[in-house]
Each structure stands twice: as structure tokens, then as C-alpha cells.
Design a binder for these strands. Structure first.
Lengths: 330, 330
DNA sequence: CTCTCGAAAAGAAACGTTTCGCTCTCTCTC
DNA sequence: GAGAGAGAGCGAAACGTTTCTTTTCGAGAG
């Protein structure tokens, strides 16, 4: 709409001075008032685009996700927006469900940094981008992408669930897990198995499944586990989707949650509140993850000359108790 | 990184010609090849920021939401991103939980349009923005904001739920509703009551609640309804949050879903699958709403001279059957 | 062989900022 | 009272494009 030139016309000041004012640098009180009055009258706001072009920074960060179908990922947007808004940065959302130039798109918009759950096909482009601007990975770590990252302690999360079940006296324990091709699931399952082993429970591979990381996958794995000759007394579901799928399969089976089968879910707080009895879950602190990722990015932006060595942040899972884990005697 | 100037250096062509090429206008075959080769070699991409500045359009739309805590709203982002990505537009996310200059922020970034669930305090600014760029409202309509909009047929959704319960023989029916200050809830409740009345059921105000539009509000309303002297046989919960709250209260009460009390929920597909028995719900087609909103915006962008009269699109609710509504005889 | 006409290329001016040197005006010090 | 130094203002050049206007080139017509 209006520009510095209009303010110049009204105040007689130079563009340089007006620029100084809008960048918070000191200006004579008299001039400050004049500018403020003119800006008010014009309803003026500096044009961010022009600013970006000239200054080479856009005060925008790209959030690149493999898809926007996943609740966890959407929540990342929310957390990042919140954290960055306070720092005066905006969020540009990009989904990259299939190969394309999503990273290039962000770069051409001059984003100052990228926070991403790295879509596999974008990893090379991300690596290239990381040479120029800070990149922070979240949720899972891509091979060959050496950048800062914020991840759940997935081993710990798996172990936490296992320990809980063991502490309640369970010995015959199943796992509804995800395929090991994504590091997050590999670790979660590994932590779970390790904890079982550490407690003298020999893993029974017919009970420890690794299916598709979806609701359907969870259903199928759960059916499989329930059909085992010697049904487990407890099961851990290693993600939100798997938990939902498993619950559906359990309900369909006619077995009763908590009574016939104990269950520890993952990341499904809402679900957990609505089931009867309430679900006990292991939960990742999604907002904290997003906030820490934003924090990392801001730190990199604040100090571009810092040690380029990637900083990896690990956050701890919570346990949210419910009533879906029965106490077994003996 | 690199710019037209670098391509000029490599090809000897003028900036104007290079610009023509990158805008898909015709260029001598020989030059086309030269440019492509140079661009390839440089890893060049035109700078979107400079383009925007010069052309006055950013090929970006702002999605302005009151908060990012609500799942429905996050899903709007997803749907809009998908629809706009195909048209070559990007999505800038802005949350405006408290008064501020969120709209100004978007405008200063030269967004070509805005899709919004209008935060009340931003309505005046949105109205001003709407004079310059297309604005599309979604979910609920703000007073005094005459723009295109895409809304659920909320009256119809309320009526749908009522009819379903009536058809199953219920006569004593409760409502867990939201405060009437937001049009969406007002309509939903109104449709529900109207349908009851149309079937000769005198509304009983102790059963028809209107509390805070939150999980806690749903819990409270549900407790209230269950405590009524003559408890209803069925209840409709008018939003996702209210449904969750009501379920929690129901579970806490010891009454059994579907057997002791029939329930129709709203917009809680995931929850619906996990309860026992499954919840019957009325659902709004979130992705369709987002897609239609994007479509409206694209139409406005394509034809800026069109009739400025607001176009209002209404989408129909679905019914997703479950087993939480008992059939009453007589 | 010149003239005309159209297509494509070139030149240059914008778009709205920031920033780099300067200049100017004070005030402080010796 | 002169010189230095700080603080503020100014003019102009950039940032990387698009677009308006002008120029060039080549082919076809007479």
C-alpha cells in the first residue's frame, strides 16, 4: 500500500532516517513523533518482502513435513509457530508427500532456517540446504543428514513401558511395533526388548511384532498377538496409530481391556481418557520437542559462527498412568 | 545464491530474456538451451522474494487461526496446504490467540489471500484486509465480516443427530452443547432443538445444556445431564471436545455407553473407533471444507473483477454409524 | 534490392527496503 | 576557543526480479 516514500512526503525526512526508526534505532524525538503520526495516518507497515530482499533474511522458517496427515506432525507446526512467533519469526508450511522440490521451494523463499521431520526423498536437498542455513531435524534422524536434532529418547520410552509391565508382574508380554526402517521405531522396540531381556524374559518373537506404522498395521499386529497359542497378559503399542489399531482389534476380539489384557499405549492422550478403563500410556512431550527445535534454530540463527558440530537434544518420555495395566500376583 | 546476473554472465543474454524464459514465454531455442545449461550448472532457482516484490504478488496465502490447539483447525492447515500446493501456492501459518497485529503481519508479507477461522479480535483488521485481497472464512462466520465462506450446515448437523435418536425411539433426549456466542454452536443446538420440537418433543431445559466449548465443559454438562431427576435415554454432544468430555463423565459415572445411555458424538472419528461400543457420530468433512475454501480463494484470485458479493458454501455433515445408540421399543 | 512487419532481444526503470559513506551539529576537553 | 568525537541525518547504491519501451534481426513481398 503505502511505503517509506509516503512517509517521506509527509515528514520531509530521508528514507534512511525512516528506516532507522522502523528498525528500532535512535531517531530525534521530534522526528520519531512525525514518523509515528504519518505511519498512523497512512496505516503503514513496512513491507516485509522488500525488507527480506534487501537484508537477505526473511524472518521466516520453513517447516517441512512428510505429510500433514499425522497428528504428531501437525502438532509440531503448532509448537514451532508458538515458539517462533515470540521471536518475531513466521512459519511457512511445506508438505512433501512425494518427491519434488519442496526444499528448493523453501530456499527460493529465503527461509532463514528449516525445521523438519525429514521426508526420505528430501534428504539430499536438505543436506545441501544445511550448508547455507540451519536445519533442525525432529522425530527421526535421517541417515547422512548431520544437523542439529531433537528426538525422543525412544530406547528409554520402550524400556519405560517394559519396566512398567514387568513391575506389575507381567512376564508374558507382547509388542505391537512399527517397521524397523525408521530409526524411531527401531529404537523404541529395541529399548523394549532390551528391558525385557534385562529382566530375564526371553523374547518370544511371535509376540513381538513389527508391522506397518498405521492403524491397520496395529490392528493386524494385535490380532496376530491375540491369536498366539499362549496369549500374552500384556501388550505395549509403540505409537499412536498402533495403539488405536490395537484397541480396535482388542475390542473386536471380545476381550476386555485391563482385565483380559493389560495394555500400554503411546502418544494417545485423548484416546486414553475415553477408554474404559483409561489407558496407561507413554507419551512424548510433543510441545517440548517443537519448542526445543525452535530454540535450537534460534540459537543457530543468533550465532551463525558457532561450532558447526551437530547438537542433538534428547527429551524424555512421560508416563501417564491409567487403569489398563492389571497387577498380576506371583 | 545465484541470480539472473550469473546466468547473464554465462550466456551473454539480457536479463529481460532470461526473465522471459523463467516465466514460460517464448525464447529462441538456442537461448533456451543456453539458459537451461547455465541454470543447471549454477543450481539456480529464481528468487521468489524478488519476484514477489516486483510483481506485487507473493503466491502465498495466509492461514489465520485463533489457536493451534484445536485439531479441527490444524486439519484446516493440512487441507488448505494440499489444495493450494497443487496450484503453486504456499501457506503461511499465523495463530492469533490474543489481540495483536496478526493480519498486519500477513499483509506485510503480501499474502495474496487469507483463509481464516476468524479470531474475534482480528475481525476489524480482516474486514480491512478483505478490501484488498480475497478472504475466505471457515468454520464460523464473524459478525460484520462479509466475505466468502465455507461452513458446515450446522443446523442440519444438529437436526441429523436429533432425528437419529428419535428414529431409534428415544423421546427423552439431552444435549451437551456449547455456548451460543459462537454461531456454529448456536446453529447446531438450534437445529437439534427444532428437530425435537418438530417431532412433538417438548424441550426440557434441564437436559439441554450450553457450557464451555471444552473437554471440561463437556464433562460438567454431562454430569449435569446425568444428575437430572429423570435421566435421558440419549444424549447428543455437539463438538469433538464436548464429546470427549461427556465420554469421560459417562465413564466416571459407572453408567454404560449404549446400554444405560445412548450417545451421538461429533467430529471424533478416532475416539469413535476406540470406544466400546463404537460411538455413532456426526462428522463434518474437514478436508472438504478446507478444499472448498482453497477453491473459493483460487477462484477469487483467478478473477479479481468478479462480483464482490460474498459466496457462501455450505457442506453437509456425515453420519458415521457406531453402536452407541440403543434401539428403544414402544 | 529495398521495404515492411513481426518476433525476439536488449536497455532501463521500477518494486520498497537497508546500508554505506558522508556531512552536519553539538558537546566535551585541553 | 579550537579540535575531536559522538549522534543523527542524508543521498545514493544496492538486493533480484519484472515490465515497459526501444532496438535488432530476418523473412517475405513487391
Amino acid at each position: 500500500m503505502s511505503s517509506y516514500k509516503d512517509i517521506q512526503r509527509l515528514t520531509g525526512l530521508s528514507l534512511a532516517t525512516i528506516s532507522k526508526y522502523f528498525n528500532g534505532r535512535t531517531v530525534l524525538d521530534e522526528n520519531r513523533r512525525a514518523i509515528e503520526e504519518a505511519a498512523e495516518q497512512l496505516g503503514f507497515r513496512p513491507n516485509t518482502i522488500a525488507r527480506n530482499l534487501r537484508s537477505g533474511r526473511s524472518r521466516t522458517v520453513g517447516v517441512l513435513l512428510p505429510a500433514l496427515t499425522n497428528n504428531f506432525h501437525l502438532t509440531i507446526i503448532a509448537g514451532v509457530e508458538k515458539a517462533l512467533h515470540d521471536a518475531g519469526l513466521s512459519v511457512l508450511v511445506a508438505a512433501s508427500p512425494e518427491p519434488g522440490d519442496a526444499v528448493g521451494l523453501l530456499m527460493s523463499r529465503m527461509v532463514d532456517g528449516i525445521i523438519t521431520v525429514p521426508p526420505p526423498h528430501d534428504v539430499p536437498a536438505l543436506a545441501a540446504a544445511a550448508a547455507g542455513i540451519p536445519v533442525v531435524q525432529v522425530d527421526w534422524q535421517a541417515d547422512g543428514l548431520a544437523t542439529d536434532g531433537v528426538f525422543l529418547d525412544n530406547r528409554g520410552a520402550g524400556a519405560l513401558a517394559a519396566r512398567l509391565l514387568i513391575d506389575h508382574g507381567h512376564r508374558r508380554i507382547g509388542l505391537v511395533g512399527g517397521t524397523p526402517d525408521v530409526s524411531t521405531h527401531r529404537e523404541r522396540s529395541a529399548g523394549f526388548r532390551a528391558e525385557l531381556a534385562a529382566n530375564g524374559i526371553t523374547p518370544d518373537d511371535t509376540l513381538l511384532t513389527a508391522g506397518a506404522w498405521t492403524v491397520a498395521g496395529g490392528q493386524e499386529s494385535m490380532r496376530h498377538v491375540l491369536a498366539a497359542r499362549d496369549r500374552p497378559t500384556a501388550v505395549f503399542c509403540a505409537s499412536h496409530e498402533l495403539t488405536l489399531g490395537a484397541l480396535i482389534a482388542l475390542n473386536d476380539s471380545g476381550l476386555r481391556l485391563g482385565r483380559d489384557l493389560s495394555l500400554v499405549g503411546f502418544d494417545a492422550r485423548e484416546l486414553a481418557m475415553a477408554t474404559l478403563p483409561r489407558l496407561s500410556i507413554v507419551e512424548q512431550p510433543t510441545h517440548e520437542i517443537a519448542a526445543r527445535a525452535a530454540e535450537r534454530l534460534l540459537a543457530r540463527l543468533a550465532d551463525p559462527g558457532a561450532d558447526p558440530e551437530p547438537v542433538l537434544v534428547t527429551v524424555d518420555p512421560h508416563f501417564v498412568p491409567g487403569a489398563s495395566v492389571a497387577h498380576l500376583d506371583g
